[in-house]
Write a protein that binds this DNA or RNA. Structure first.
Lengths: 214, 214
DNA sequence: TTGTATTCTTGACCCCGGTCAATTTCTATA
DNA sequence: TATAGAAATTGACCGGGGTCAAGAATACAA
């Protein structure tokens, strides 16, 4: 069987990737596929959305607002990430976060009844979801610890440490969003980057790329 | 069948509570039961613990440390809460958090192989775990948003709002721990409590109890 | 009950990072 | 490639909350 179109959307996602062909086929039949434009929202706070969304292509940012309307970036989704789970799996809960498309995206959705049915039938799917959740929870709790206990210099250092590959830091979001993620002001982030540059720790290549020197 | 001893430890936990008697019996056989004294640790950062722990009685606090040795309280577990999942479900990950017994506790443990076996056999168990994770993730992300975007007054107000019952706030942890949870200094927490008291928002009954006036 | 250790409270000091404002640079779309 | 709007940068100001210190209240073990 040759996979094509939206089928690929799912077969490469860790949640489903271990399934046999005929099992995958069963998943495909329950998928709805949609193209979304930059600026559109998969869901917003207050929605009782009942779909699990798998990002096949593009970029989506998840954020929350506090009572004053200030944003906290939760994460940025790219290929094979999924979301929508919080309101999907919490009994009768409405979403507390926003999912905004940052770059034109292809998104696959599976609705509540179908995903529950699949989990019942294929326990491995649940296990994959659990493992993915465990990792997310880990990240989330690390983020909590970091943004609350570190000063802005330490936050940025920690972010660089965990996102550097081959001595290069390539940002997959704007500095404005990174500032929100690290819970500081864009001005502070700029100043902290500059401070590290003056100390010879990093070297700016362009707005999205830094060399990590030591 | 009459449930007794450590069997009750599990039958009331949401993860397993929906199982039939004979299915429960199968879970019981895989449980190991232990009594723990205040000050002991279920696990510590660095452990490759491979058990899911269910708290039957007592109180356990989960916290993390940053590089400077400062604590961030993640949550306090009481009856029917479970933990240990992060290192259990993350492939080859070691724990990043500490689980310290605050009040003498009875804890049931299920090891990695057994819980995976149970999840394979009874998909409902996985689904319950997923639902529980979703809620935890929700709480964790809310905590992130709150501690990062609110000032100390707003943090405390938010905590009071979500923990008041019958116009009474009863703290289930010390103020030192509450301060850690809300990510502020104990001194700041004291001052903020006092501020709210002066404004007539709350009234201190004793160190663990406040009347909520408006 | 007593003694000791921890927690809690209060005061004084001051620094990190938030806020406001003004340019400059970047990016997207016509 | 021109142009508008957003993002990034830089400077000046200042206040919330961290830190240190010292005393009061509470909890716990003997």
């Amino acid at each position: 069987m040759e996979l094509q179109g939206h089928e690929r959307c799912v077969s490469r996602v860790p949640i489903f990737s271990h399934l046999e062909m005929d099992e995958l086929e069963e998943v495909f039949q329950r998928i709805n596929h949609q193209n979304m434009k930059k600026g559109e929202y998969l869901f917003m706070a207050g929605d009782r959305s009942s779909s699990l969304f798998v990002i096949h292509k593009g970029k989506v940012r998840i954020y929350r607002l506090n009572d004053n309307g200030e944003e906290q970036l939760i994460r940025v989704l790219t290929h094979s990430d999924f979301t929508g789970e919080l309101s999907l799996f919490s009994a009768d809960e409405e979403s507390k976060s926003y999912a905004e498309v940052l770059e034109d995206a292809e998104v696959c959705g599976i609705n509540r009844e179908d995903i529950y049915g699949l989990m019942q039938k294929y326990p491995d799917i649940s296990i994959k979801i659990i493992e993915s959740f465990a990792e997310r929870l880990n990240d989330s709790e690390s983020l909590t610890t970091n943004i609350s206990l570190l000063n802005s210099r330490e936050k940025l250092i920690e972010y660089i440490r965990t996102h550097t590959e081959n001595d290069k830091l390539i940002l997959n979001m704007t500095k404005k969003n990174l500032a929100s993620y690290l819970s500081m002001q864009p001005e502070t982030l700029t100043r902290t980057f500059k401070k590290l540059e003056n100390e010879g720790v990093i070297k700016k290549i362009n707005n999205k790329t830094y060399d990590i020197l030591k």
